[in-house]
């Protein structure tokens, strides 16, 4: 088994209001291994982006990391001082966001935006070295170097997202956190970008934390997947197990929320009800009010994430005891 690049333990993130605290992430545990693609899936508001921000130490008020530990190559990220944090961000862990339209500065040529990143982290590099690196990164993601001095509006959405990927890769990070990187793109462009990420990952050997609600895409792309519901991880398993042997009722329900492209046309039911509001979390299992198989115990005691070694899965459900 490969070693862990990142170990997240009991991570807790709150959003602090004047009169109330909303717990967005409630003590979650997972690992990201060397060279693996780890996926986080769940509905809007389940806390998956909050996790991503917390891992990169980008949580801002009213968000607050109130507990737990994030260890990156053995070091405690949550205790990094200013200088260490500066090196950690982008040299070691970089980010690709959903909105490629907004991630780039519209009034600066893209060459400057990539050079800035390289220069900030390598202040001794010469102008020529920086330019050469920028050209190399552009070629890596399949954009002709002659377009380096164009402005963001001169590129299509897919090309802008590729530029964001080039900027994320330019310092050779160990981990790239991708938060819905293809959601705003058309399906053919999405396929192109994903294939490119797979290709680059094989060449450069980085790990990926990939966040999206599109479970089908995640199963295709990732090695292991964590399913989040209402701020908690309900199941962590290899992609093949998420597809063939989902253990948690929520994982099954989420899988049945996407009509397939093949097989018989039959009615699917989705998931009844809506996720709970962060300030009114149910007692016990948070999925119980929407769960078709809920038992009396489910609304009393919260199940713990337990390992099921024969499946390589971890799941938190009373049905599995």
């Amino acid at each position: 088994m490969s070693s862990n690049l990142m170990e997240v333990r009991n991570l807790t993130v709150d959003y602090v209001g004047e009169n109330a605290i909303a717990r967005a992430v409630n003590g979650i545990d997972f690992d990201i291994r060397e060279g693996e693609a780890f996926g986080l899936a769940g509905e809007s508001g389940c806390g998956k982006s909050t996790v991503a921000f917390a891992l990169a130490r980008l949580t801002r008020l009213p968000g607050l990391v109130t507990g737990g530990s994030v260890r990156f190559m053995g070091e405690e990220v949550l205790e990094f001082e200013r200088e260490r944090l500066r090196k950690y961000r982008w040299n070691e862990v970089s980010f690709v966001f959903q909105s490629a339209m907004n991630a780039l500065n519209p009034v600066i040529p893209v060459s400057e935006q990539i050079s800035d990143t390289i220069w900030t982290h390598n202040p001794k590099a010469t102008r020529e070295e920086i330019r050469a690196r920028a050209v190399a990164m552009f070629e890596l993601v399949g954009i002709p170097a002659r377009r380096l001095d164009d402005y963001p509006h001169q590129f299509s959405g897919g090309m802008r997202q590729r530029i964001c990927i080039a900027i994320a890769l330019c310092l050779n990070p160990r981990l790239i956190i991708m938060d819905e990187p293809t959601t705003a793109l058309d399906v053919v462009v999405q396929r192109d970008i994903i294939e490119q990420i797979v290709d680059l990952k094989a060449k450069l050997g980085f790990s990926v934390l990939f966040i999206t609600h599109a479970l089908g895409l995640l199963i295709e792309f990732c090695d292991r997947i964590g399913i989040m519901y209402a701020g908690e991880l309900v199941e962590v398993a290899p992609s093949s197990a998420i597809l063939d042997a989902p253990q948690h009722p929520y994982t099954r329900a989420l899988g049945n929320s996407f009509p397939p492209l093949t097989g018989p046309r039959q009615r699917l039911e989705g998931i009844a009800g809506t996720p709970p509001a962060p300030r009114a979390m149910p007692v016990g299992c948070r999925f119980a009010p929407r769960c078709g198989q809920a038992m009396p115990v489910c609304s009393l005691i919260a199940p713990e994430l337990k390992v099921y070694p024969e499946l390589g899965s971890e799941a938190a459900c009373h049905l599995l005891q």
């Binding site: 399906v187 294939e195 895409l217 492209l261």
Partner: peptide, 11 residues
């Protein structure tokens, strides 16, 4: 191009 969980991505 539609995501298909039944296969693995090959660039």
């Amino acid at each position: 191009a539609v995501p298909n969980p039944q296969r693995k991505i090959t660039p």
